[in-house]
Design a protein around this nucleic acid. Structure first.
Lengths: 191, 191
DNA sequence: GTCTATATATAGATAGAC
DNA sequence: GTCTATCTATATATAGAC
């Protein structure tokens, strides 16, 4: 019942960041939304950047867990890929503020290039292994892996944004399948 | 020889926005970089938001011109698509700060959903016509057009970011072709 | 049109009582 | 750990001389 003040701060920060941007959200407004004094906020986090980074790590972990949930690694590659894709989309649809926060952090320069690479490695570990497996088996084209990874991330963001902005199509299988078809086909050898 | 002060302000703003983000850039720093007084900046633009919007419109126009340049509309669909893709990538590589500014505006909520749709219509008019033509001829799958458009935008941003962050691969044809192959295949009917 | 000087608000962060 | 009160810097924007 008693959510810790620290967690309240993180929750309020996520909401406000997604609504107003990171720079557009003051620490004072976060504290107010969390029903907490500014002094309390700065007791739990040395500064605003640390708060953002901690929230980023938590969100990243949350996504990676959702990606991997209920995945049967013995299934055919395409079934795994589809399950992964739907896991990701369902997460984005359920937590639009998290997807948006992710994109805010990505486009801001809070993270160095190596930080981003590291993050992608973990956050999309499941996806990276899938790509490697597909390339080895010849199902996927042998494109440079970093290029493919960024492409997947971009397509995922696009699809997530689409369903968030068009909730009427969330349960429309033709839209779901179209988004997966584009994702899957992009990985395959040239037709 | 004599670039107008207003243009100097826009140029400096673009550079600083791409480096520090929009909210992370003060009007004072823009004026300083442009060798202009803050009063001059606010003489040319009623407020910061108007400056951002005007810069956005100019950048959007710049991109749409580059997309369409030297395109022979009689060529086979795939040749047109490849020319379009390379036009876009070359623009991004040549003007990384413009691609970045675009992404900053996209992720910020300065633009309403309808503004974004409008912008996409114009900015990517060439691309949209290409998609429609391909769908009509059966070359492309008949996925929902808005979903496809967002997907293309996402893949373009990803590829642009990749080449900007990995300049050593800019002239590597295998990377160029890989990025186009993913883009093209995503549009095709399911293999 | 361009400048200097300044008004006004708000930001991130700290001090110290409880 | 949590609060109130406050410091200090910086932000956007304006006024008015030139």
């Amino acid at each position: 019942m008693n959510i810790s003040k620290k967690q309240q701060i993180l929750d309020s920060a996520l909401t406000l960041f997604s609504e107003n941007g990171i720079d557009g959200t003051s620490t004072a407004s976060i504290a107010k939304a969390a029903n907490v004094a500014t002094g309390t906020l700065f007791h739990h986090f040395p500064n605003k950047q640390a708060l953002v980074y901690q929230l980023y790590l938590a969100t990243k972990h949350d996504l990676s867990v959702q990606f991997s949930s209920q995945l049967s690694e013995q299934a055919p590659l395409k079934d795994i890929a589809q399950a992964l894709w739907n896991n990701g989309l369902n997460w984005a649809i359920k937590h639009p503020e998290k997807l948006r926060f992710f994109q805010l952090v990505t486009v801001s320069q809070l993270l160095s290039a190596s930080d981003k690479a590291n993050a992608m490695e973990q956050e999309l570990g499941m996806v990276m292994r899938l790509i490697s497996a597909g390339q080895s088996s010849g199902t996927f084209a042998r494109h440079p892996i970093e290029l493919v990874a960024l492409n997947c991330q971009g397509q995922f963001n696009s699809a997530g944004n689409f369903f968030i902005e068009n909730p009427q199509h969330v349960d429309d299988q033709s839209y779901r399948e179209a988004s997966f078809a584009m994702f899957w086909n992009a990985l395959c050898p040239l037709v």
